[in-house]
Amino acid sequence: MEIVVCVKQVPDTAEVKIDPVTNTLIRQGVPSIVNPFDKNAVEAAIQLREKYGGRVTVISMGPPQAQDALKECIAMGADEALLISDRAFGGADTLATSYTLAAAIKKIDKVDMILCGKQAIDGDTAQVGPEMAEHLGRAQVTCVSRIELDGQTVRLEREQEEGYEVIETSLPVLLTVTKSINEPRYPTVKGTMKANRRQIPVWTAAELTVDPQRLGLKGSPTQVRRIFTPPQRVQGELIQADTAREAAGMLINKLVEAKLV
């Protein structure tokens, strides 16, 4: 079984800053990590390979530094990795990104299952996976928390607010997974050494059968007008009193003064 996992290198959210002039994220000098949901997808793919056999290929669209994320996935246990990188892809929204990734998967050919994280922690759109399925014309199931195979039949548990929905579909299929599906393994020393020696192939726009007008900023109908950091909430006042009755009276007086009651 051929499994492709799409991963994204994202800025560490604890370090994100916003350029007030361009209204874009400042990525220079900011630590990058593998999107946590995508790590769950990589782990799910490795577990499927261990149980049913096959091969796991991890792909990412991004700048050259995204090779670090791919090597981490190889260190976890992925078999192959591929970077989709070109200046023409710059500024892509979810539609252009999904179009480019779908073109790469078409070139890989004979892919039985595509796994993605539920969403990326920087954009939080959860759109790229479903849009890829539409470009590829294959079945999709989102928010998957369990995967079982029986030949060409895939039995899934889909996470919902008040329980799980059990769905059966057939290969080929695209799935997005939640964090509850597993606990990603840590890269091993042997795996890290293997990853460090690996040369990651890079595909540019020239290697893909694509329409240049659908790539990058040109192919992105979505544009960000403004981005900002919400102001910090003002810390509330702590009312101190000898008894609960006294504290309640003080609270009521303050609410009256503020014309809230």
Rank of each mutant, 00 (worst) to 15 (best):
residue 155 R to S: 15
residue 18 I to P: 05
residue 239 I to G: 09
residue 88 A to Y: 02
residue 242 D to V: 14
residue 140 Q to R: 06
residue 119 Q to A: 12
residue 64 P to Q: 13
residue 247 A to N: 08
residue 237 E to D: 12
residue 185 R to T: 15
residue 122 D to E: 10
residue 229 T to H: 06
residue 97 T to P: 00
residue 120 A to D: 01
residue 202 V to L: 02
residue 39 K to Q: 15
residue 76 M to A: 05
residue 153 T to V: 15
residue 81 A to Y: 00
residue 44 A to N: 02
residue 54 G to F: 14
residue 101 L to E: 01
residue 28 Q to K: 12
residue 133 A to L: 06
residue 231 P to H: 11
residue 248 A to V: 15
residue 58 V to D: 01
residue 93 D to A: 10
residue 95 L to P: 00
residue 149 L to F: 13
residue 76 M to T: 07
residue 172 P to D: 12
residue 42 V to H: 02
residue 234 V to M: 12
residue 44 A to R: 02
residue 257 E to K: 15
residue 196 N to E: 13
residue 242 D to G: 05
residue 7 V to Y: 03
residue 225 R to N: 05
residue 145 S to E: 14
residue 7 V to N: 02
residue 185 R to L: 12
residue 144 V to M: 06
residue 182 N to M: 11
residue 133 A to P: 04
residue 240 Q to V: 15
residue 59 I to H: 02
residue 225 R to E: 14
residue 123 G to D: 15
residue 215 L to G: 03
residue 80 E to A: 12
residue 173 V to H: 03
residue 257 E to H: 05
residue 203 W to H: 03
residue 213 Q to D: 15
residue 9 Q to G: 01
residue 64 P to S: 11
residue 131 E to S: 13
residue 252 I to Y: 05
residue 60 S to W: 00
residue 100 T to C: 02
residue 35 N to M: 09
residue 65 Q to R: 00
residue 72 E to P: 02
residue 172 P to Q: 09
residue 7 V to R: 01
residue 79 D to A: 04
residue 213 Q to G: 07
residue 188 T to C: 10
residue 148 E to H: 08
residue 43 E to H: 08
residue 95 L to N: 03
residue 117 G to Y: 08
residue 75 A to D: 05
residue 235 Q to T: 14
residue 152 Q to D: 15
residue 27 R to P: 00
residue 94 T to N: 10
residue 8 K to F: 05
residue 170 S to V: 11
residue 156 L to Y: 11
residue 177 V to I: 12
residue 206 A to T: 11
residue 175 L to M: 13
residue 63 P to T: 01
residue 96 A to L: 04
residue 235 Q to L: 14
residue 225 R to A: 13
residue 108 I to R: 09
residue 121 I to C: 03
residue 111 V to W: 01
residue 248 A to H: 04
residue 173 V to E: 09
residue 135 H to P: 04
residue 40 N to E: 07
residue 115 L to T: 04
residue 14 A to K: 15
residue 142 T to Q: 06
residue 242 D to W: 01
residue 37 F to W: 14
